[in-house]
C-alpha cells in the first residue's frame, strides 16, 4: 500500500461478512431473530434485547442523508479531497457512515433521498450512496 499511503484498518471478524456481501453487490443488515430489531454495524448480539440469534437481511439500498460533511483536506492519499462523508439512514432503520457520490458536494442536502452504489476501492467494494434516481455504476 506504500504507493497509496498507510493501510486502512482491515475488517474484523464481526464486520467481514458485511464486506463480503458488498463484494456481491448486497447491502447486508443485521436483524434480530427474537425482537426483529435491525441494526448496523453487525455485532455479537442484538443491541436492543441482547439476543444472540441473529440473521442477515438484504437492505433495499435506499435511504436519506441525515447529516454530511465535506472534506476539503486530504487525510489519506487514496482518498483525495474534496469528498462527502454522510450519515445515511437506510429505509429499514439502521444508519451507517458512507460517502455521497454522483453529484457535486454543493448539491448534497440533509434529507436528500439516496440509493446505494457499490464502488471498488483498493481491496474492498464500498457501499456508497448517490442521489436516488441515479442508478448507474452498480458493479
Amino acid at each position: 500500500m506504500s504507493a497509496t499511503g498507510p493501510a486502512l484498518p482491515p475488517p474484523d471478524a464481526l464486520t467481514a461478512p458485511f464486506w463480503e456481501e458488498c463484494r456481491r453487490g448486497v447491502l447486508a443488515i443485521a436483524a434480530c431473530a427474537d425482537c426483529g430489531h435491525r441494526f448496523l454495524p453487525p455485532g455479537p448480539c442484538c443491541p436492543r434485547c441482547w439476543s444472540r440469534r441473529l440473521a442477515v437481511q438484504e437492505a433495499c439500498g435506499r435511504g436519506r442523508v441525515e447529516t454530511f460533511a465535506v472534506y476539503r483536506r486530504t487525510y489519506h492519499p487514496a482518498l483525495p479531497a474534496p469528498y462527502v462523508v454522510a450519515l445515511i439512514a437506510l429505509d429499514e432503520g439502521p444508519r451507517l457512515i458512507s460517502n455521497v457520490v454522483g453529484c457535486a458536494a454543493a448539491e448534497v442536502a440533509v434529507g436528500m433521498p439516496v440509493a446505494v452504489r457499490f464502488e471498488k476501492a483498493g481491496d474492498r467494494v464500498l457501499p456508497r450512496f448517490a442521489p436516488a434516481g441515479d442508478q448507474g455504476g452498480a458493479s
Binding site: 484498518p9 474484523d12 460533511a69 462523508v85 464500498l126
Partner: peptide
C-alpha cells in the same frame, strides 16, 4: 481513522463534529 469508517475517508475528530455542526 475510526475503524471501518476510515475507508470512507472519515478521519479525525473534525469530521465527526462537522456532522454535528451541519
Amino acid at each position: 481513522g475510526r475503524g471501518d469508517e476510515a475507508v470512507f475517508g472519515f478521519f479525525g475528530a473534525v469530521g465527526l463534529h462537522a456532522l454535528a455542526a451541519r
